[in-house]
Design a protein around this nucleic acid. Structure first.
Length: 471
RNA sequence: GCCAGGGUGGCAGAGUGGUAAUGCAGCGGCCUGCAGAGCCGCCUUUCUCCGGUUCAAAUCCGGACCCUGGCUCCA
């Protein structure tokens, strides 16, 4: 069995073979920290996290770099050079870097609650401008860039002739036309060309020195430069949202090849969108939720299970109801773990075979381009098996719970519950209830149960006595 | 217009030629003092529509309809 990934470059499922045996170098496009992480961003970052954890499950050593963009590139109007970070900072009356630091804090809090692991390196764009300038110099030296009035542009038609530009997106550079709403930069030779370096207008705060002008880098440059800086000339996996299929990734790729003659990445992976009521969420329509509000409402595990329950390349239509469904699924898994870990066990060992079945099914599903919904099927099937198998030896039950935790861990589930209760009081009430039940005073026993429920303690009676969980 | 991807049962969502996974919700049963959880069964001859290929199609071919995204801000 080998892992197969859908490579946007070939539009086919391909066997995944890393450049160096046993090691995976991956780079994914990260957050521009001028605003809060929304659930669409969260889905994509959670997916990279699952991909990375799965590669590790498969035995690879993974170097995963995800950038932090702390400078805003351009907004709608390509000519004006307005910077998103700068614009957001102005709106809030903050210095740009103060805004960045605040948003970065919020970003990390979201990632922690989503159980997205820290990345190997999290390079910041503003720390690498000098290296971006060097990339542009190489591109110009190799004849793929041209300078006009302090600006530098990438010559797409020249690149297309030499290497082919349309491979990933299917977009023919000759047929590219700017949308009517975009004011075409008159300094470009062709519509398909894009900026490598732009001269900063007087009022522009973000500005760096370069051989061509005091200005700022084109927005495709940071990934090209930082991926190579930390992972080497050709990386294994480059990921991003599917909106990057064009123009961002073809341009990154073109820059990298133009600068060094080497392919930037062997596998290009693109994640689908989360929509709301069938429409892409966007700031202007206001139809989006922040990851924070969903996490606060339903918890990180619910969100991770919700994400895992649809395939990463497919668009998914977000609704709170669906996350609530996922929450119920998380509870089902948690209860099964509770049973396995607290049961006394018996003498059987047949559950061991089922553990192996689950692991195999899980791996097979994940090998098929990270089919997490199918992988979940294996988990839930095993949950049912284990619920029926508490007559197995205790060590087997613990193996089973460990297997569930590991497999769910790949999907980013933590499955632990915060318990903050005064166990002394709880124990007294539980004891009291048992006594009342023994005496047949059920009405009073039920009152105690209600009282416990009010404290967040749910009591359940089982064959082996009562059990309680914190809600 | 050009490029890309979709339409599966109440909901979500797998499934690329051979009885439609799995989860959620609902209903019935077992269990229970009751409840919950758990287990068993049902909802489920149907996969947007129309043709075709095949012993056999949600799955392959042809056509239609509908939806979403990208086309230089975007996960």
């Amino acid at each position: 069995m080998t892992l197969r990934l859908f490579n946007t470059l070939s539009r086919e499922l391909e066997d995944f073979v890393p450049f160096e045996e046993g090691v995976v170098r991956m780079y994914t496009c990260g957050q521009t920290v001028y605003d809060d992480v929304h659930i669409g961003n969260a889905r994509t970052y959670a997916f990279w996290d699952t991909l990375r954890r799965y590669l590790e499950w498969r035995g690879f050593r993974v170097f995963h770099v995800q950038n932090i963009t702390d400078v805003g590139h351009l907004t709608d109007d390509a000519d004006m050079g307005t910077d998103k970070v700068e614009a957001a900072a102005r709106d809030e009356g903050l210095e740009p870097m103060a805004l960045v630091e605040r948003q970065l804090g919020r970003y990390y809090r979201d990632m922690v609650d989503l159980n997205v692991e820290r990345h190997y390196v999290e390079p910041r764009a503003t720390c690498h401008v000098q290296e971006m300038v060097e990339t542009v110099e190489k591109i110009v030296d190799n004849g793929y860039g041209y300078v006009v009035d302090g600006n530098v542009y990438f010559d797409v038609s020249r690149f297309d002739e030499d290497y082919g530009y349309a491979e990933m997106s299917g977009m023919d550079p000759g047929e590219l036309e700017a949308k009517p709403r975009v004011k075409e930069d008159p300094l470009k030779r062709n519509s398909a060309d894009f900026a490598l370096w732009l001269k900063a207008p007087e009022e522009h705060i973000m500005r760096w020195r370069s051989p061509w002008s005091t200005g700022y880098p084109g927005w495709h440059l940071e990934c090209t430069t930082m991926a190579r800086r930390y992972l080497g000339a050709t990386i294994d996996i480059h990921g991003g949202g599917k909106d990057h299929v064009f123009p961002h990734h073809p341009n990154e790729r073109a820059q990298a090849i133009a600068a060094t003659g080497k392919e930037l990445a062997n596998y290009w992976i693109h994640a689908g969108f989360l929509t709301i009521e069938g429409e892409k969420m966007s700031k202007s329509k206001g139809n989006f939720y922040t990851a924070r509000e969903v996490i606060d409402d339903l918890g990180g595990d619910s969100l991770r299970l919700y994400f895992a329950s649809s395939h990463y390349r497919k668009d998914a239509d977000f609704s709170f109801e669906d996350v609530e469904q996922a929450e119920a699924g998380v509870e089902r898994i948690r209860r099964a773990l509770g049973r396995l870990e607290s049961a006394e066990g018996g003498r059987e060992t047949y559950l061991r075979r089922e553990i192996q079945v689950m692991r195999n099914d899980f791996t097979e599903a994940m090998d098929d381009d990270l089919d997490t919904p199918l992988a979940l099927q294996a988990v839930f099937r095993f949950v049912r098996e284990s619920n029926k198998s508490l007559d197995n030896r205790r060590e087997v039950l613990l193996e089973a719970s460990d297997a569930i935790r590991k497999v769910c861990g790949v999907l980013g589930l933590q499955l632990d519950r915060e318990v903050e209760v005064d166990s002394g009081v709880v124990d007294i009430l539980l004891e009291q209830r048992e006594r009342l039940r023994d005496e047949g005073r059920f009405d009073e026993a039920d009152e105690v149960r209600e009282e416990l429920l009010g404290m967040g303690i749910e009591v359940q009676d089982t064959d082996e006595g009562f059990r309680w969980t914190a809600t």
